[in-house]
Amino acid sequence: MAEISRITGPEGHALAYVKTEGAGPCVVFLSGYKSDMEGTKAVHLEAWAEREGRAFLRLDYSGHGVSEGRFEDGTIGQWASDAEAVISAATDGPLVLVGSSMGGWIGCLLAKRLAARVAGFVGIAAAPDFTEDGFWAGFSEAERATLMETGRIELPSDYDEPYLVTRALIEDGRENLVLRAPLPMAWPVRLLQGTEDGSVKRETALALFDHIESPDARLTFVTGANHGFSDPACLRLIEQSIVEVSG
């Protein structure tokens, strides 16, 4: 397993990443909200890529994992820029973007910015526009008022700590929405979604599928799979999807 490397990101934070050398296109794993590059899918796919002789990159956005910065200071736009900076510093040539949950949204943003380099896209329980269509849409008027007045609000989560949502996250999210216009992707696309996902609705997966303009796009629903999408069968499906979009 390769060692952790670091670069200075666009906001001055030290951003951590692990690059495994191999044949291209380089598979780039983009993790979710409050997740990091030590997650089950990231580590599993790194080991798989190494066995297959494929180039692989996993990374921590600022405020995540072992990268510098405070989580509560981050926004979608900043985290996308963090990922773009690491990709530009650590790779060259074609890319396969693999985005999990929020990483699916970030992957959509990077697909626009790095279109000339992208060879394929895999979304795993992708959560585009969740700050607006999930958080903001689900807030009561009182919660919205608290958020706008105090700049932050805490929401219960299925994990150890509550989700901290900031006003900056919501406002920046509105500048980076991807489901309000077509999403050109001139490469193969695979979207994977569990039927028992408690965080991302089926309607979100369908909306993303409908917005993507690709010559080869497929959306697969997996019976019983949850938001983690990390059991052996799901991990094999992710591997298969990466192979399919890699050309």
Results as ranks from 00 to 15, higher is better:
A142V: 08
R180W: 09
E175C: 15
D133C: 05
E72C: 06
L57A: 02
A14V: 06
T20Q: 05
L45P: 01
H13Q: 14
A90E: 04
G22K: 03
T146K: 15
Q78Y: 06
I76S: 03
A83K: 01
W48I: 12
I124M: 01
L164M: 10
V28S: 01
F130K: 01
D73K: 05
E141F: 02
R190N: 03
M148Q: 06
T204N: 11
T40Q: 15
V165M: 13
S88M: 07
S214G: 07
D231K: 10
R152D: 02
V18T: 04
A186E: 14
E143C: 08
G69W: 02
A23R: 15
S101A: 12
L169C: 08
P156G: 05
E149Y: 04
L59E: 03
G123M: 07
V86I: 10
G104V: 07
A233L: 13
E171N: 11
R117V: 01
D92M: 13
D36E: 14
V122H: 00
H64C: 14
A42N: 11
T8A: 10
V245R: 00
Q78N: 10
P156E: 10
S81T: 10
P184V: 04
V118G: 00
K41I: 12
L169G: 07
F229Y: 11
V189W: 00
D158S: 15
K19Q: 08
E175N: 15
S88P: 01
L191H: 00
E84W: 06
S88R: 14
W105P: 00
N176W: 12
I124G: 03
H64M: 09
R70Q: 13
L192N: 02
E149T: 09
Y17F: 06
A55D: 12
I153F: 14
R218S: 13
D210L: 06
M102N: 05
P215R: 07
E21P: 04
D73H: 05
S35Y: 11
S88H: 05
G194Q: 05
S157H: 11
R58V: 04
R117M: 07
G9A: 04
A126Y: 00
L109W: 04
H13L: 08
G120S: 04
V86N: 02
G103T: 06
V122G: 00
L237T: 05
G123E: 03
G151D: 03
